[in-house]
């Protein structure tokens, strides 16, 4: 996801160490809008705005979250309306 993109969460995979449940406790739940805010200098982790809080998440954990584009912010990957990982 490009920085600045706003996406809507479709589903959250459980993960093998309880990651999915933790992401849900942090508000990353199907239907929630997530904004990609900023990447760390070396590209990982990334800061997302979720429910008015700002969460830093590693790529590996964000990969559990399936999203689709929201509103008018199209991205190359989500342009076709398909689901992609956060």
């Amino acid at each position: 996801m490009a920085v600045g993109a706003a996406v809507v969460v479709r589903s959250v995979a459980p993960g093998e160490a309880g990651q999915g449940r933790r992401l849900e406790d942090l508000g990353v739940i199907a239907g929630t809008i997530v904004r990609v805010e900023r990447r760390a200098p070396m590209g990982d982790p990334t800061i997302y705005e979720v429910r008015n809080a700002r969460l830093a998440m590693r790529k590996a954990d964000a990969a559990l979250v399936q999203v689709e584009a929201w509103l008018e912010v199209p991205t190359a990957e989500a342009g076709g309306g398909g689901h992609v990982a956060l």
Binding site: G15, E16, A17, G18, Q19, R22, L23, L26, P45, I47, A53, R54, L55, A56, M57, R58, A60, D61
Partner: peptide
Amino acid sequence: GPAAPVVMEL
């Protein structure tokens, strides 16, 4: 073993 997620609130 699997590692718990790295999710930090700022």
